[in-house]
């Protein structure tokens, strides 16, 4: 059985496989890494580092992009 971890993504708690990386998280959420900026525990993680950044239980992830604004 695969253990799962709880990650807060954009304010909501979600469960992921315990071996997940940030890259896996984007894939599960069906998001194109080129179109979002990833902030992991308050630090920005650039695209080349996503696969090498493991998730741990209790981590907080923010996924942002540009929207209309003044």
């Amino acid at each position: 059985m695969t253990a799962s971890i709880k990650i807060t993504v954009n304010g909501d708690t979600r469960e992921f496989d315990s071996k997940s990386s940030l890259d896996d998280l984007l894939r599960v959420l069906d998001l194109d890494p080129r179109m979002v900026v990833v902030e992991h525990n308050r630090s920005i993680v650039r695209r080349p580092q996503l696969a090498a950044t493991p998730l741990e239980d209790g981590d907080s992830v923010e996924l942002v992009h540009f929207v209309g604004g003044g």
Partner: peptide, 19 residues
């Protein structure tokens, strides 16, 4: 042209950003 930074809407993840 100004733009704002906001959370991606995960419940409607196909919603497009302004880019």
């Amino acid at each position: 042209v100004t733009v704002a930074v906001r959370r991606v809407d995960l419940d409607r993840s196909q919603q497009e950003g302004i880019l």
